[in-house]
C-alpha cells in the first residue's frame, strides 16, 4: 500500500464502521444524520461515500437490512405485525409496502410460502436436495 493511500483507508474505516453500526442497530430508531456526525462526515459526503461503497444510500441500506431480518422472523412464524415492530418499522403499512418492493410479495404471502416449504421438507427432507447430492451422501434410500 502506498503512503498516499493511507488517508483513503482511514476514510474507508469510518464508512465501514457506519455500515456495521447499521447492521447492529437496525431495529432501533436510527438517525442517519447522527451516524454521519459520528463518522465525522457532512451528511452529503457520508451519503455519497456510503453509496459508492455499498451501492445504496444509508437509508436504503437500512431498509434492506430490516427486510432481510424480517424474512428470517417471518420464516420462524412470528406474526407479521410483531415482525414489523421487531425490525424497527414504525408503521406496519410502510413495512408491508417496502417488503413487497424488495421481495416481490407481501409479508403474509412470504410467510405462507415459507410455512408450506417447511411442511414439505418435514414430510420428505429429500425434496430440498438435488438428487446428485443425495446420492453422493447416501441419503437416497434413507428414512429420516
Amino acid at each position: 500500500m502506498t503512503p498516499a493511500s493511507y488517508p483513503k483507508m482511514y476514510l474507508y474505516r469510518r464508512i465501514v464502521q457506519a455500515k456495521l453500526f447499521i447492521d447492529q442497530h437496525y431495529a432501533e430508531p436510527l438517525d442517519l444524520s447522527a451516524i454521519a456526525d459520528e463518522a465525522c462526515f457532512s451528511k452529503f459526503h457520508f451519503v455519497r461515500l456510503f453509496k459508492s461503497a455499498y451501492g445504496r444510500t444509508p437509508h436504503h441500506y437500512l431498509i434492506k437490512v430490516r427486510i432481510d431480518h424480517a424474512q428470517g422472523l417471518l420464516a420462524k412464524d412470528v406474526p407479521v405485525a410483531e415482525v414489523s415492530m421487531r425490525v424497527g418499522f414504525e408503521s406496519s403499512t410502510s413495512f408491508a409496502a417496502l417488503f413487497k418492493k424488495q421481495t416481490g410479495m407481501s409479508p403474509s404471502v412470504y410467510q405462507r410460502r415459507q410455512r408450506i416449504r417447511k411442511m414439505m421438507y418435514r414430510g420428505n427432507p429429500l425434496t430440498a436436495v438435488p438428487n446428485c447430492f443425495a446420492e453422493a451422501r447416501g441419503w437416497k434410500n434413507s428414512n429420516f
Binding site: 474507508y12 474505516r13 465501514v16 459508492s52 461503497a53
Partner: peptide
C-alpha cells in the same frame, strides 16, 4: 462494489 471497504469490514 468496493473492495477496500469490503476488505476492511471482513478483516474487522
Amino acid at each position: 462494489n468496493d473492495l477496500l471497504a469490503t476488505y476492511e469490514e471482513m478483516k474487522s
